[in-house]
Design a protein around this nucleic acid. Sequence first.
DNA 1: GGTAGGATGGGCT
DNA 2: GCCCATCCTACCC
Length: 197
Amino acid sequence: MDPLSVATRGRILPRSFYARPTIEVARGLLGKLLVHGKTAGMIVETEAYLGGEDLAAHSARGLTARTKVIFGPPGHAYVYFIYGMYDCLNIVAEQDGKPGCVLLRALEPVWGIHIMKERRPRAHSLRDLTSGPGKLTLAMGITRKSNGADITRGNLVVREWLPAVEIAVTPRIGIRHCQDWPLRFVISGNQFVSRRI
DNA sequence: GGTAGGATGGGCT
DNA sequence: GCCCATCCTACCC
């Protein structure tokens, strides 16, 4: 495929795509293309973080300086710092004022792979480049500077890519609360997920 | 193949 | 002071 066409093929997902229940957005993002600068990857694994009784969600403790983006309008990036070293990318869902976001946990590298390899020299395989929430932000060059960014325009966007995918569902990874809630979504059979089912 | 433990710092009680 | 939506290395099958 012509490399230059990757970054512009497929329409940018509009705000209406994100202004829906968080679980629908988490499922709908699978097979879409995340584009940042001169890198792009297909989303193959997501997790939904809900409002209400979902105590695993950052928004469960209420509106603070950190979590205000999650309570804001849909289609924006929530990027948080974890374990003193890593940034993780979420996309805000639901209507303005209602909390809900989708963590991007793994991508299949599509474009700008040589740039990703430079940013992650320790990766031992193509899968290793982006098979985790901290890995994919490093490979794509996404940092907390993008916290609050509008992802329906600008240099960080999500585009249409695959028309449809088969989805498998599991509990979320690495959390203490609500461990058995089925809110992790992966493309069935995809080899680029963070963990096999 | 699998796993235990360390690195490292912001957020919140 | 404790928790944490992680990653990497070392070491052991």
